[in-house]
Nucleic acid binder design. Structure first.
Lengths: 167, 167
DNA sequence: CTTGGAATGTCAACAAGGCTGACTTAAACT
DNA sequence: AGTTTAAGTCAGCCTTGTTGACATTCCAAG
């Protein structure tokens, strides 16, 4: 509200309630943009955002178990199971009984699943690529830094584990 | 995928599919953190995230009309109306007939509404404040820049109008 | 070896919150 | 007077979240 450009010093500049409020609104509007393109594609098919998320993380960690995926997505078993079941029925996802522990199901994308995943993430990446390009490399580094600081510790661990698993 | 650390130059460094994929995952996990605290509060009451969003934007633009709010939130009349009706009934929101145009309803928070809004946004801001502090002022500037670039043009206009109305 | 508990996944039923479409009411505009 | 606009409502649908009960499998203690 007052002191928009920091006569009271660098440190406080970004910590006024008004600055934080704007950050929250930016998150809200940006997240809508972030999901808009894949949502548009999915609207045509009989799938939703939940399917996209599952596809994404199965692609990111092939062979992951249902339980793993549950924790990553932060939803309950049934919520995931419904989504998963339709995609198994439709031949996008394969669910293989674990060799060591036969209670587990290991999830993999079929070729069709991989194709849809790529289509969705391509749409999403196109927007991110444009945003990154427009904002510049330094801004992107800051973007990533703040996002990471905003995660719950548990999520941050998941996030970093995924990164490490790919390089 | 290939070229993870940019032998092909600064410009491409942030535009590999892998970098963009990580950005998408960061958005996903961060948004969960972003909504986690208010969601926890709301779980106790009989309200949800939809109520929080309405409260936030009515607080941000007191006297806004239903149509305005509709566009800001990006939902349909019925969807908003359900949420709004319960909050009017519960005495959190007041709906006043327009003076100039008596078809319009101008929305305001009651004292109770303001109290709840503050409680929710305090929780949310606490996390953002911590994240901002940890990431530092430069990172925050980049964060805001990328988020803004990620919005649809229509949303960006809304976002900027809200900022101007206050800052 | 058996048995009881823990882990994993599946199914049934329900709730929140999106959506469309049709319709009403009131007020404003032309 | 007739049209358009803002808001509200009803009915009904879909996705995606929830809890609770259940089946299967593993493992460890007796």
């Amino acid at each position: 509200m007052t002191d928009p450009q920091g006569s009271s010093g660098e440190t406080l500049l970004f910590l006024t309630d008004e600055q934080l409020r704007q950050g929250a609104e930016a998150m809200f509007f940006a997240y809508r943009g972030f999901t808009a393109d894949p949502d548009r594609i999915l609207a045509g098919l009989s799938y939703g955002r939940a399917h996209h998320r599952a596809l994404h993380f199965i692609h990111a960690a092939p062979g992951t178990t249902v339980n793993n995926l549950l924790n990553t997505l932060g939803v309950t078993k049934q919520s995931l199971n419904r989504v998963l079941r339709t995609m198994v029925e439709d031949g996008l996802v394969e669910s293989r009984v674990g060799r060591n522990d036969r209670r587990e199901r290991h999830l993999h994308l079929t070729e069709a699943g991989d194709t849809l995943e790529r289509q969705l993430s391509n749409a999403q990446r196109a927007r991110m690529r444009a945003a990154y390009k427009q904002a510049g490399p330094e801004a992107v580094a800051g973007f990533r830094k703040v996002l990471e600081s905003m995660m719950d510790p548990e999520m941050r661990r998941q996030y970093q584990r995924l990164r490490e698993g790919r390089g």
